[in-house]
Amino acid sequence: MPVEIDIVKVAALARLALTEEELDTFGSQLGDILEHAERVQALPTDGVPPTSHPLPMVNAFREDVTAECLDRESFLRSAPDTAGGQFRVPRILA
């Protein structure tokens, strides 16, 4: 059973402007993925500890020491627009 999802809302959350056709395609594809997840959820997992990560590791920390940073010209060069050593972007809210 494919799972029904509100694909219009999902697209809006991701700020994607999709055509009707794309909404249909992605809606059914995402539905298939959720259906798969439902099947996995149906498995008996009593006694299986919850897993948040596939690696059997915890607590990878860094010493609190500083290291060299990038020269800003090296990355500002890739920005569409800059001003005074800063990234310049279109206004955020209308």
Binding site: R62, D64, V65, T66, A67, C69, L70, R72, F75, L76, G84, G85, Q86, F87
Partner: peptide, 23 residues
């Protein structure tokens, strides 16, 4: 702290813009 939360850039926002940045 001396360095940022997830990288080794100095945790100091006061310098010239974008001089405490890394990948």
């Amino acid at each position: 702290t001396e360095s940022k939360m997830f990288c080794s850039c100095p945790a100091d926002a006061e310098g010239e813009p974008n001089t405490a940045c890394c990948p």
